[in-house]
Design a binder for these strands. Structure first.
Lengths: 158, 158
DNA sequence: CTGATAATGGAAATCATTTTCATTAAGGAG
DNA sequence: CTCCTTAATGAAAATGATTTCCATTATCAG
C-alpha cells in the first residue's frame, strides 16, 4: 500500500524485486524524477532536485543508484563533453521516443533529434548483427551523436 | 633543417603556421606518437610514452596540446566510459581508415570496426544535411559506438 | 514483529583535468 | 645571426566529478 513518499506498484518494481534489489525511498525518488523530467540531468542536477522533496538524500546515493540503473539497463548514461555524465531514462511510460543527440561544442547545448531514426534502425540492426557475429560481442546499446556549432556559437567564432 | 628532435616539414606544419601556432618540440613529439600509434591513448598514456624520448615533457602540456589538436580538428577525443578521455589522430599519413568503436562495458576493451562504414556514410550525410538545416547547426563530426559485452565478459556475468 | 543484511549518507579519498605563475624558447624583425 | 616579443611550457596547487570508507538505518523475508 502506498504510504509516505508514495510506495506504489510502479512499472519498475518487478525489475527490482526479480533482481533482488530493495525498493527504497531514494531509489523511488530518483526514478520518479527521471520519469517526469525529459532533460539531460547530471548526478548533481538529480541530487538537487530530489533534495527538494527528500532532503535526506545523499549525493553518494544518487551516484550509486544511477550506476545500478545503468547496469540494469533502465537508464542511459551519456557524455556530452562537459566533464560530467548525463542520465536519461531508457524505458517506462514517461520515456521520450528513441532519439539521438546533437551537441554544440561551443556552448554545450544538446538537442534531441528523432529524424532518420527509421532509416537508421535498419543500418543499426544490420551492423549489430554483423558485429555480434564477427567479434563475438553481445551488443546492448548504441550511441550516435553529432557534434558541431549551434546558430549562436557560429556567429561568435567568426 | 632537421635538428635535435627532428624538426621536419611534417604534413601538419602548415596547419600550425597558418593558424599562428608555434611548432614546438612537445607538440612534435605528441603528434609523432599519435601518428605512429594506432591505439586509444589517454593523456597519461601519451605523457608516459613521450616522456621516454623527451623527459622534459609535462602532463599539463600534453593536455593543452591535445585540446589544441582537438580544436584544430586534427585529433578526435572519445569517451569509452572509463573516466578518462582517449585520443586518436583524425588525419595524416599514419591514420587508420574511418572507423567506429565497439566498447565492452565489462572490461573496457575497445574494438575498431570498419564494416558498414559505406552504408553508414550515406545515412550520416543525409542526417547531417537535414539536421544542419533544421536546427541551424554547423556539424563538424559524428560519433557512433556500440556498447556490449565481449566474449570473455559474457561468460563471467552468467 | 524481528533479525540479517542491503542500502544509506557524511566525510574523506581519488583521480582526471585545469589553473596559476614564473621560466623558457619559437620565430619574426633588424 | 642576434635580439625581442610573447606564445608555450612545466611544476605545483586547485578544482571538480566520482568513489571509497564506515558507522548507522531501513527493507523485507520469515
Amino acid at each position: 500500500m502506498p504510504r509516505g513518499f508514495g510506495v506504489g506498484p510502479h512499472w519498475w518494481c518487478n525489475r527490482f524485486q526479480d533482481a533482488g534489489f530493495r525498493i527504497t525511498v531514494p531509489r523511488q525518488a530518483i526514478l520518479d524524477l527521471l520519469n517526469r523530467t525529459h532533460e539531460h540531468l547530471s548526478a548533481e542536477d538529480i541530487y538537487l532536485e530530489v533534495h527538494k522533496i527528500y532532503p535526506a538524500i545523499g549525493l553518494t546515493t544518487v551516484y550509486r543508484t544511477l550506476e545500478l540503473l545503468v547496469n540494469m539497463g533502465l537508464v542511459f548514461k551519456f557524455d556530452f563533453g562537459d566533464g560530467r555524465a548525463r542520465y536519461e531514462l531508457s524505458q517506462g511510460p514517461g520515456t521520450l521516443k528513441h532519439h539521438h543527440h546533437l551537441v554544440c561544442t561551443g556552448c554545450g547545448r544538446v538537442i534531441d533529434y528523432t529524424e532518420f531514426i527509421e532509416q537508421e534502425k535498419e543500418l543499426v540492426h544490420r551492423t549489430e548483427r554483423e558485429l555480434s557475429r564477427k567479434y563475438n560481442f553481445k551488443i546492448d546499446s548504441h550511441q550516435i551523436q553529432f557534434l558541431g556549432l549551434c546558430h549562436n556559437c557560429q556567429k561568435e567564432n567568426k
